[in-house]
Design a protein around this nucleic acid. Structure first.
Lengths: 206, 206
DNA sequence: CTCGTTGTTGATTGACGGGTCAATTAAAAA
DNA sequence: TTTTTAATTGACCCGTCAATCAACAACGAG
């Protein structure tokens, strides 16, 4: 019984946050939607923050699955990169619920170490995936370009989510891929033209 | 008397949101910090949302001033673009208060038309500034590249704010400018390779 | 048939918060 | 001096909410 209730509560959390746009939703409301009492929610999750964090973990899991699915369908670095990018712009990620969850997640990450940890996991996962497929294309430049692509994804996502800047997710994907191709071309040209590895100002860490 | 109280309240709002990280701060607390009663805050602003929106407007004003200041010190499209980008990554924008205000602003923008309006203003302002200086460099590609740069700024900001991804704002600026230069080069090369409608009409270059 | 375990809840609590309003003070106008 | 207006507040209403707790149901094991 426990696992059923837990997932019901997690899904209800995502839903209610999506409806209100805020983390400021009564646990009782979430519980009602999950068909249980608020006391049970506390019984299983301890407190509201943990409940939300579990919900976010759930979303991240779905997202990761989506990425894997996309990756399994293609071959070659460039196509794999496109798959990763495209996964981030699938309609799934632009449902009210997902947007609300992410934005509130960011807010929470300022003050909650749990949220910070989770956010770091997401970032590191994305980064290492990108680097993995970038390395064969640009070698040592991979980390830098990965950061660039990741930032671009986040930025476009934000704009798309809050302003309907780009109409479709495909367009956003195209935009990122175009930028990526340009960066790729520039990087390889650079390596041929001027064999300068470190033109980045000194020391970086972690 | 009124203007004094208003700005005191606005500044107190920014401060308290910065401390708590949340919009979920009692008006009474904000008022106390401003040295007035919560009733007065309501008297002047009507409700909490308006108070916060005014605070956000205030921040946006400061930011715009910063951009103008940067622009006034340089000349030429490329330098002006750098000034705009750099303004976004100045320490000012990375104080707790600014980060908290922005993140909560995003959250609010999901549901508040007032916040949406304000966000649109910010976006349009940035966009038109970028386009203005991009046009002489890349002609019709200006809007597309402007969107790219804007998204990159937002994305890097987010990562810098929540993860300390890049160490310094200068580095972030450099990252954006590098991407921009690459895009610029690609764009002009494209135009040389494949003849396109009349661009590079008026104006200087570089 | 009873006992212990698991799942579940209603009721309650202690605290807080937004927004309102009658009433006070201070200053300006007449 | 009297009247009017602006500035400001304390107290309060009504509502909410997170978290706790004691208790009840269901049920399989012995």
């Amino acid at each position: 019984m426990e696992p059923i209730r837990r997932t019901a509560l997690v899904e209800a959390t995502i839903h209610e946050i999506g409806v209100s746009g805020t983390l400021d939703v009564p646990v009782s409301k979430i519980a009602r939607r999950a068909g249980v009492s608020s006391a049970l929610a506390h019984h299983y999750f301890g407190n509201k923050e943990q409940l939300f964090l579990d919900a976010m973990r759930h979303m991240l899991t779905l997202y990761a699955k989506e990425v894997r699915r996309g990756l399994s369908e293609v071959e070659g670095p460039r196509a794999r990169l496109e798959a990763v990018v495209a996964a981030g712009f699938r309609p799934f990620n632009f449902q009210r619920e997902a947007i609300a969850a992410w934005l509130n997640f960011y807010v929470l990450a300022q003050t909650s170490v749990g949220a910070q940890r989770l956010l770091n996991i997401y970032h590191r996962r994305l980064h290492s995936t990108l680097v993995h497929d970038l390395r064969p294309l640009v070698g040592d430049e991979a980390p830098r370009i990965a950061r660039l692509v990741a930032a671009l994804i986040d930025g476009l996502y934000l704009r798309h989510a809050l302003l309907g800047d780009l109409t479709t997710g495909e367009e956003a994907t195209w935009e990122v891929m175009h930028a990526l191709d340009v960066a790729l071309a520039a990087s390889t040209r650079e390596q041929v033209a001027a064999p300068t590895p470190a033109d980045i100002p000194d020391g970086d860490l972690q």
